[in-house]
């Protein structure tokens, strides 16, 4: 995949995909949104970020997506500190990420296929490759035959599937999902989670922020538990990185 001006990242054995060290983020000086968070994310792993509303889950997702920078501490992608990257390099880095939100964030007056094509157009793929990949991924999320429908006219569950298709389209190495099933019925939520878990099979790391304990119990994975912006628990050990498709990272 063409990625434009790419930062000098390359795969290295035993280097985590993402590494957070003593990360803090303050919106108000007296009350941190995140405080002293450290953990690693490895390729191919599925990680929950759990906590009640206001625990700092969304802030953590924004930091991982480089939409914000930590006030203290560091976040490194394959050993490269994000705070040292130029804005353009951060944009390029984001092309190796997919992101899904509870409120879908689709361009509602565009068709399903146009929405899904956005990250591929940004990455500068040829029209033929975009068409092929968009068709594949729309089919995969179960919306085949509805690709020309306007996204805003679809149901919530369908819109979330479009959002997942958009996030998966560029075959990201890191998939971030902020309460993606929060407003969906159980059946659709299950389908969405299947899609996210499936992505780990080809080496992508998935970070899913959720407050839903039932969900975490039904599909057990490593959990980073947050409370009042602090990490109060981390289940499972940091694994050695799987040697999978790291050349595609950023």
């Amino acid at each position: 995949m063409e990625t434009g001006a790419m930062p000098p990242f390359s795969a290295a054995a035993h280097v985590p995909l993402v590494s957070l060290r003593r990360v803090s983020r303050f919106y108000r000086p007296d009350r941190p949104s995140l405080f002293d968070i450290s953990f690693d994310i490895h390729p191919g792993e599925f990680l929950y970020v759990s906590g009640v509303s206001g625990a700092g889950k969304s802030t953590l997702i924004r930091l991982l997506h480089c939409a914000e920078q930590p006030d203290t501490g560091s976040i490194a992608f394959l050993g490269h500190d994000v705070s040292r990257l130029e804005p353009k390099a951060i944009s390029v880095l984001r092309r190796s990420m997919g992101v899904v939100f509870q409120d879908f964030r689709l361009i509602e007056d565009l068709s399903v296929e146009a929405n899904v094509a956005v990250p591929l157009e940004v990455a500068g793929l040829s029209r033929a490759r975009i068409r092929k990949r968009v068709a594949e991924v729309i089919e995969r999320v179960g919306l085949g035959g509805r690709s020309r429908e306007i996204a805003g006219t679809l149901s919530g569950g369908e819109q979330q599937r479009v959002a997942i298709a958009r996030a998966l389209a560029s075959e990201p190495t890191l998939l971030l999902a902020d309460e993606p099933t929060g407003s969906l019925d159980a059946f659709t939520a299950d389908f969405i989670l299947d899609l996210l878990e499936e992505a780990t099979g080809r080496g992508a790391a998935v970070v899913l922020a959720t407050h839903d304990r039932m969900l975490m119990a039904a599909r057990p994975h490593r959990i980073v538990a947050l409370e009042g912006g602090r990490m109060v628990g981390l289940t499972g050990d940091d694994r050695a990185p799987a040697a999978v498709g790291l050349q595609q990272v950023v």
């Binding site: 997506h65 939409a67 390029v92 956005v118 940004v122 990455a123 958009r166």
Partner: peptide
């Protein structure tokens, strides 16, 4: 603005 937000989420540079 939604389109701009989505573009930036998808890794579009300011120039793009």
């Amino acid at each position: 603005r939604r389109e701009i937000e989505v573009l930036k989420l998808s890794g579009a540079t300011d120039r793009y």
